[in-house]
Design a protein around this nucleic acid. Sequence first.
RNA 1: CGGGAUGUAGCGCAGUCUGGUAGCGCACACGGCUGGGGGUCGUGUGGUCGGAGGUUCGAAUCCUCUCAUCCCGACCA
Length: 569
Amino acid sequence: MYFSKLLIPTLKESPADAEVASHKLMVRAGMIRQLAAGIYSILPLGLRVLKKVEAIIREEMDQVGGQEVFLPSIQPAELWQESKRWDFYGKELLRFKDRHDREFCYGPTHEEVITDIIRKDVKSYRQLPLILYQIQTKFRDEVRPRFGIMRGREFMMKDAYSFHTDEADTQKTYAQMAKAYANVFTRCGLEFKQVQADSGTIGGSFSHEFAVLADSGEDEIAFCEACGYASNMELAESRPGSASISTNGTEDRKEIHTPGKKSVEEVAEFLKLPREQIVKTILLENENGLVAGLVRGDHEINLIKMKNLIGCEWLLPVAEKTIDQQLGLPCGYIGPVELNIPIYADQEITALKNFVTGANKADTHFIGVQVKRDLKVSKFGDLRRILAGDPCPKCDEGKYQVKRGIEVGHIFILGTKYSEAMKAVYSDNNGKESPMIMGCYGIGVGRTAAASVEQNHDEKGIVWPRNLAPFEVIVIPVNFKNDDLKNTCESIYTQLKEMGVEVILDDRQDRLGGKLKDADLIGIPLQIIVGPKNLEEGKVEIKIRKTQESQLHPYPQIVNDIPNILKDL
RNA sequence: CGGGAUGUAGCGCAGUCUGGUAGCGCACACGGCUGGGGGUCGUGUGGUCGGAGGUUCGAAUCCUCUCAUCCCGACCA
């Protein structure tokens, strides 16, 4: 391609509304343009990158036996009502009516559609297992989209679904998918971790995320370097201490006046006690009403863990106003003693003796509280957020590290959640019908590209790994008016093209400086700079984008070596 | 959905406090001098100042409403 013929509107300045590197750089490099909040147009250079990601995904999906399909983006409400997600999915599901007043949504994901296809056309165990995938535009009406195509409302996603007769076969495919995902992200030049994750609104029993490590990531990843255990912070297990339900303590429970001391810090300081001697009581609400969560004063509660411990549909903090006004409980002095709602407590509480809690009375706390004697706990469990430096729950040597990550892929074992709700059943060799067991597997295509930019950029611009680069080589004449240079460049360009190298020729009339700035900005791995002085000596300059290393090589011999040089990029 | 901010030329911004009929840099078009790391001189094009209403002789500027976008939080494969 000739640079002057392509729409590559590069910018010198970053757009004012861009915050993270990938967003700024992809806009500056003329790859994306915003149309509305979280909705982006992909320009030619950007599309070339996305197509590279897609091609890698297709190869890896086909490798594990995936079959590509293309499902509708607009889906009828009835399907979503069948799976119960029409009510459950909330405002993120973009809904609208057609001219006949029938309700539809723009698909945020495709479990319903794919399950509908399979239930109609697959009846026998002989037809299973099946893996189907598609690469398609999704729409999720997120409250707050941000960071360019990293977290758009409309975005390109690869979603795959597998159908099985038994759990073991599902596990096998799940493991193969995990390997395929690792291959995809490795080929995209990303440093990532496969982490244990919560399954969220998709549902199901078992899931892992693929997280690209980057400071701009929105997820927190906890991992142990010693044994390799890695988890989303949402789920990261804490290692139980020397937990044993404390016997009746040595002290009696006593009220104590703590005027104006609400936070754990304030109470600890006031009573001259360590924070771990205080128990925090957090009020929460779920579909069955109010519940309380207890954690040690130096710990933070983890709502996902708590939701999973209770086994409820949803769990949200109760607003301070509601606590004060509707419950008549004084915020800051709430405690578990004689609190008549279900109480769930972190396992660490069981080891405490003579601790402090709120007394459900303004300006008052209890001291000398004992678990066994004073509390009615519905269930103990792992409820706290882990902290960096905490001991690893899986091995004896390791300690947790916490880093930020971008979730580029997520795999789930769904079980029979959708097949039961939507009656996707098969007959086994005895003619008996059972619901199929399902798995689902997603990759954010645009997000993967953006994550790659987050990991591969410098102050000059993007540094694409070769496998994602929109072009592998850019040929830059110092001056395109000079016929000699022009002919040489065109000859290099043509030869490389014939060798199967993806090459672009910067035929613009601009000065050299501008062309080099653009080449660095858009991140093409290899630059060939052709100038009159070097050419007189039979040489051209080869510059590596990543290292900025530049070397003179004999021309025309060097042209045949380009594929070799590219191998290392 | 709570808190904060911003909307002026394609992009980045000044002007708003103190009302007087719109400006800078880049980009773009044409021409000159240039030509190895965003060069230089000149001449141009382009804006109903996010929108609606109001106050005023007069509104980018003051008031009211509204829309959009961004940030923090909550939420979220």
